[in-house]
C-alpha cells in the first residue's frame, strides 16, 4: 500500500509531552497508537490492549484530565499534552486511595481491567470529590470487567472518594 510515497513522508515524528509528571520526548511512527507508545517506548505496561477498538477500556489513560482509550488515540496526538497512566498513581511505593480501595473491596481479580478502571476512576475523582453512584457507573461504563464484578469496583471507588475527602478534611482541620 502507498508504495509510490516518498520515504521521507513516512519519517518518524518527534513529540514531547508530560508523562506521569515528567517531561518526555520520543520518536514515533505517525500511525502508532498512544497505547503502543506508552507500552513499548516507555515500558509502562499497565494499560492493556483488550479489544483495540474502543469497547473494553483496558487501555484507558488520562489525557489532559480526561479518560481516553489509548487504542483510539494516535501517539502524535499526545504532543504537548499531559498524560497519566496507572504507573503514576502510587508515589514512593505508597498506593493511591483508589488502589487501596480496589484491594480492600475485592475490586481486583485477574487484574486485566484494573489499570483502565483505576484511570477512569482517577479522572472522575480529580473532577469531583464525592461522585454519586450514578456518576461512578457512568464514568466506568466504558470499562469492562469479566471477573471481579462491577459491584465491588463501584464500591471501591465510593470508598476511595470517601476516605480521600475525609483525609482532606482532617488535613484542613490540622492546619
Amino acid at each position: 500500500m502507498n508504495q509510490e510515497i516518498p520515504q521521507d513522508e513516512l519519517a518518524d515524528l518527534e513529540i514531547s509531552f508530560t508523562l506521569n509528571g515528567s517531561q518526555v520526548r520520543v520518536s514515533i511512527k505517525p500511525w502508532e497508537t498512544a497505547l503502543d507508545t506508552i507500552r513499548n517506548k516507555f515500558g509502562l505496561t499497565g494499560a492493556k490492549e483488550g479489544c483495540g477498538i474502543g469497547e473494553c477500556g483496558a487501555c484507558t489513560i488520562v489525557m489532559d484530565g480526561k479518560a481516553v482509550n489509548g487504542c483510539l488515540v494516535l501517539a502524535a496526538q499526545l504532543d504537548g499534552r499531559t498524560v497519566e497512566t496507572v504507573e503514576g498513581l502510587s508515589s514512593n511505593g505508597t498506593l493511591d486511595y483508589l488502589q487501596k480501595a480496589f484491594l480492600d473491596k475485592g475490586g481486583v481479580q485477574c487484574g486485566f481491567c484494573t489499570p483502565g478502571m483505576l484511570m477512569s476512576a482517577k479522572a472522575l475523582l480529580d473532577e469531583c470529590d464525592q461522585p454519586s453512584k450514578d456518576r461512578i457507573t457512568n464514568a466506568l461504563s466504558g470499562n469492562l470487567c469479566r471477573c471481579a464484578g462491577y459491584v465491588q469496583i463501584i464500591d471501591a471507588v465510593e470508598d476511595a472518594a470517601l476516605i480521600k475527602s475525609k483525609d482532606a478534611e482532617n488535613q484542613a482541620v490540622n492546619r
Binding site: 474502543g54 484507558t60 480526561k66 479518560a67 481516553v68 482509550n69 488515540v73 466504558g142 470499562n143
Partner: peptide, 9 residues
C-alpha cells in the same frame, strides 16, 4: 454515545 472515553474525544 458509546462510553465516557468515547464522549471525551
Amino acid at each position: 454515545v458509546g462510553s465516557l472515553q468515547i464522549r471525551n474525544v
